[in-house]
Amino acid sequence: MMKVVFFFFFCLVLVWGSFLASSQVDVLQGEVYKILYIHVPNALCAFFSSFLLFLSSLFILLGKKKKFLPYAKASADIGFIFTLLTLVTGSIWGKPTWGTWWTWDARLTTTFLLAILYGAYHFLWQVAETTEKRMKICSVIGILIFADIPIIYKSVSWWRTLHQPPSLFVASSSPMSSSIYWPLVVSIILTLLFSLSLIVRRANNLKLAETLEEKAMKSSFS
């Protein structure tokens, strides 16, 4: 699994490197627009992780399938990292574009809240020590966290905001030029695959840790 993670990471570095090195420059934003290739995929991965968290939580809560617990935790951990990266890259992009590192724009605010929710999920995991508590409490919270995602996405439509209106998944043709659009799509796909490989790797680590702990407990009581 580690080889798969390294492979996708290597592909990402290659792709990002080639985009950053390209001579194309945006008329209004200049060179800084190239952070788009990192910021947007990170944001989508943050959302994608919450979807995986939601799916795992659903299987745990409704199907009573304990084996999805490590995947839920892994999704939350990786989602937290990508949300932080989204906020950081967004701030770096925002300073030259909007003239400020941070603003209480609706999308930024709700993305920041998503980061808090992921962090709180991690804290909850530590406090709910038994598997039964995690299966019930953490999976309900996982479902609630996912409920926050549509509100983040729709916030651009509902509230007046500085943030870029949705330009990727719009019904009419995208206002983005194709020379930016397709490299962005490639970047998104690679980043999603990379995040998926990270989640699987993390879940495997968690399962291994649990198995080792069980063996240690068994041997100390036999």
């Binding site: 605010t109 808090i116 929710l117 709180a120 804290f123 909850l124 406090v127 926050d148």
Partner: peptide, 11 residues
């Protein structure tokens, strides 16, 4: 834990 979940989810 309560404020950590209540505030973000209710915001």
């Amino acid at each position: 834990l309560y404020p950590l979940f209540f505030y973000p989810l209710g915001s």
